[in-house]
Amino acid sequence: MKPALLFAALLLASCKPASSPAVSVGDAWARATVPGQMGSAAYFTIRNGGGADKLLSVTSPAADASLHSSSIDNGVMRMRPLPALEIPANGAVELKPGGTHVMLMGLKQPLQAGTTLELDLKFEKSGERRVNAEVRPASAGAAM
C-alpha cells in the first residue's frame, strides 16, 4: 500500500511543471492608417508566469485581423500567415514592427491616432482575452 501511495505522490508532483498558464497581455498598440489605406498592423506583448500556452487567433470587430510574421531572408522581406503562436512557459512573446504582428486588413474605418482598437485574443488554455490597443501615429514604431 505504501509504495502505491508514494507512486501517487510522485505522479502528482510530476504534474506540477505542466501547471496552468498565467497569461497577461500588455503594451498593445496599432499603427494609424495612412489616408486612403485600409490596412495596418497591431502589436502587443504576452507575458506568461505559468505553463506553456498557445495563441490560436486574434480577431477584431473593426477589421479582418490575422497573425502574421515578417521575416528577412537574404535582404528580402517575406510576410506569411502564422497558424498559431507558441507562448513558452514562464516566458514572454513580443509582437513588434518587422516581426510577428497582427495584420489588419479591410478596416471598416481608418484608424486615427489617439483612439483605441479592440482586439480579441483566443488562447488554447487561457481562453479569450480582450485588449484595447492604443492607436499611434503612422510614424510610430521606428525601432525594428
Binding site: 499603427r31 495612412v34 486612403g36 489605406q37 490596412g39 495596418s40 498592423a41 502574421h68 515578417s70 522581406m77 510576410m79 514592427p97 518587422g98 504582428h101 495584420m103 489588419l104 486588413m105 503612422a138 510614424s139 510610430a140 514604431g141 521606428a142 525601432a143 525594428m144
Partner: peptide
C-alpha cells in the same frame, strides 16, 4: 508598397528618425 502593413511603414518611420 503602400498596402504593406508592417515592414514598409516601419522602415520609412525608421528612416525619418535616423
Amino acid at each position: 508598397f503602400t498596402h504593406c502593413p508592417d515592414t514598409c511603414p516601419t522602415t520609412l518611420a525608421r528612416l525619418v528618425k535616423l
